[in-house]
Write a protein that binds this DNA or RNA. Structure first.
Lengths: 99, 99
DNA sequence: CTTTCATATGAACATTTAATCATATGTTTA
DNA sequence: TAAACATATGATTAAATGTTCATATGAAAG
């Protein structure tokens, strides 16, 4: 860690971001999307959840810019937004698995 | 991301771990400890929080093995447990700052 | 061994959060 | 344009969470 002085706002933003990863449903969604881009309905079916629950979480993920969307007719295709997502999950997995 | 098939338990563990990072107080504590190992009282003063609040959060951090302790007389010295901690925070910061 | 100092812990309370249900929005097809 | 389909959204509710206050534990000093 090079720079260690951050504003309160940066810290709040960081906490808000990392909070997003602290939910099993969202992790599952992100892992699914790591495999391949998917529609909401596909995610709901694969995760065994209601369309509404998945959609709510996708909206959280999108607000935090962790996923991005692309309309395709009636459907909306969701995808991982950038590399940081996988990076954070991967590092977390390392920590969890080293026990 | 090499392996993409995880058990429910692994995912729950991962979510529980990442949830720890989703709180500004805990981030602040971790950032403080990144600078140098500290006693509970030092952290409380530096963060302007009560001893109790800090201690509660330290206990959360310790349970997740994100910090480790070492008694020194009346005091207890806290330190970052391993590299994953800084790694996750760093990646999160990158994401937050790229906007 | 009693007081003091540093830290931990339990209970209580207010806030946040994730799922559900019902419904709205927006796109396609008949 | 009306019906069907995919997704989003608002309100509600139950559960989880962070702080506070009071108190307990445990080590050191007198």
């Amino acid at each position: 860690m090079k720079d260690l002085k951050f504003t309160d706002e940066t810290i709040e933003d960081l906490a808000s971001l990392l909070k997003i990863f602290g939910d099993a449903t969202r992790i599952r969604i992100l892992l699914c999307l790591s495999k391949r881009d998917s529609y909401v309905g596909e995610l709901a079916e694969q995760l065994g959840m209601t369309q509404s629950a998945v959609s709510h979480q996708l909206s959280v993920l999108k607000q935090s810019k962790l996923v991005k969307t692309q309309r395709q007719g009636k459907n909306i295709l969701y995808a991982i937004a950038d590399d940081h997502v996988s990076s954070i999950i991967e590092t977390g997995l390392e920590h969890v698995m080293e026990d």
